[in-house]
Design a binder for these strands. Structure first.
Length: 422
DNA sequence: TCTGGGGTCCTAGGACCC
DNA sequence: TCTGGGGTCCTAGGACCC
């Protein structure tokens, strides 16, 4: 029988911070979102304190003082780099991997069909930990959905020691009977509530529902999950995930602003970030959208959502072209006297760069843009993000609260740890 | 005072065409 | 007293993921 593996990094962002400061071991750690707004990662100790995912930081000040919680502003370049290291180790240990998110990868064992999967899982977990410092949970099972459950068991039961091979039908049945249906991959809050109303509490209860009922109430997606729980693999392994169909850069600001100049710099910066992501996957886009939003938590003022989609006559990937369109969009939707709290740029109608039909008449311009962008991308890769920017972005960083940022330990020479021998 | 960001797929309904 | 029907494309909204 073929098996799927899942490697999930435990409390990933919090664990990344811990790698570079071992004094955090045993201490509650939380990582905050952009502008230090809310909690996006928690160590086990922080979870035990009742700190919730997404909880606003300002509600936690008392807990943080009382329990001596270590708090960090999100350091995404660091987490991205640590992720690449983890994925690199995995790639050396199994025939193929599918990077599913920054902290998860599915593992394909084709060709290792007679392996001792229990021992293999433990070896992978130990090796990743030793080579990167990141603790992981490995689940191995007949389907992806079951592998997810197996990996969650590792977190629940430390005795499993980081790996769980779940394959005997009687074991699977026992596990599902104690596994809350809301924690199953593919069952979100809505369906969780709907199922609870039907008296469905565990994954096993769900698997016992009639197939047709699931198909009718939860569509093909819900049915897929149901089949996967029955051990029928419906979600295949994809070693090379498809290109993104939408690329977005959106931010909530540190405060409300009416200042057109600031919005202009922000939109230009977001457009440049989107364009760089677009080129990184080797695509061009056919449309640029821009939106502005007011603070959704303010009851005392009318809400505004301004947005516009601007098609491009010829698909493009140049920061200069996309920025010009995004700024044009901003001019169209901006309303004087409205204080905005959030804005974003979204690229859509994405095509492979190699496949699209260019415009014969501006081939020269295009070649020039291509050379310029290649140079800009190379410089920013070598010397750090935003070293070369468009004039529209302005100089210096955009306003942002990040009071508790750790150092760029692995992505900048200045950030390297200094070790003193005594 | 303070409340994240970036994605995917599915489905229903309307527009449009023959 | 009658108001076709089926296919396709697009969009908005709803569900999910990390």
């Amino acid at each position: 029988m073929p098996f799927y593996g899942l490697c999930d990094c435990n409390n990933f962002y919090a664990s990344c911070e811990r790698v570079f400061d071992p004094s955090l071991e045993g201490r509650p750690v939380v990582v905050l979102s952009n502008n230090d707004g809310c909690v996006i990662a928690r160590s086990n100790e922080a979870k035990s304190l009742g700190i919730a995912m997404g909880q606003p930081f300002f509600q936690l000040r008392e807990t943080i003082r009382r329990a001596d919680v270590a708090v960090f502003s999100a350091n995404f370049p660091l987490y991205g780099d640590m992720s690449r290291r983890v994925m690199g180790v995995l790639r050396r240990l199994v025939p193929a991997t599918e990077v599913y998110s920054i902290d998860e990868a599915f593992l394909d064992f084709t060709g290792m069909d007679d392996a001792d999967f229990d021992a293999l899982g433990h070896r992978i977990a130990r090796t990743v930990r030793r080579h990167t410092g990141i603790p992981v949970s490995i689940g191995i099972a007949p389907t992806k959905t079951l592998a997810k459950i197996a990996s969650k068991l590792c977190k629940r039961y430390p005795k499993l020691d980081g790996a769980c091979f779940m394959h005997r039908p009687e074991d699977i049945r026992k596990v599902l009977g104690r596994f809350p249906v809301n924690d199953v991959w593919g069952v979100g809050p809505r369906w969780g509530r709907m199922l609870a109303e039907q008296g469905v509490r565990t994954a096993w209860d769900f698997a016992q529902l009639p197939r047709e009922w699931v198909r009718r109430r939860m569509g093909v997606t819900g049915l897929r999950t149901w089949c996967e729980l029955h051990g029928e693999a419906c979600i295949g392994f994809e070693e090379h995930p498809a290109d993104r169909k939408r690329i977005a850069t959106t931010r909530t600001f540190d405060r409300d602003t009416e200042d057109f100049g600031e919005l202009h710099r922000r939109i230009a910066r977001y457009a440049a970030l989107c364009a760089a992501k677009l080129r990184a996957q080797g695509s061009v886009c056919g449309a640029v959208s821009v939106f502005l939003l007011t603070n959704r938590f303010r009851e005392d003022r009318p809400r505004h959502y301004e947005h516009v989609v601007l098609p491009l006559s010829v698909p493009a990937d140049s920061t200069l072209e996309l920025t010009a369109r995004a700024v044009e969009g901003l001019r169209r939707i901006y309303r004087r006297g409205v204080a905005y709290k959030r804005a974003g740029v979204i690229l859509s109608d994405i095509l492979p760069r190699s496949g699209f039909q260019g415009d014969l008449f501006d081939a020269t311009d295009r070649a020039k843009h291509d050379r310029l962008m290649a140079a800009v991308d190379a410089l920013n890769a070598a010397y750090g993000r935003h070293r070369v920017v468009t004039a529209a972005e302005g100089c210096g960083p955009l306003p942002q609260h990040r009071d508790r940022l750790s150092r760029p330990f692995t992505t900048d020479w200045e950030g390297l740890l200094r070790v003193k021998a005594t």
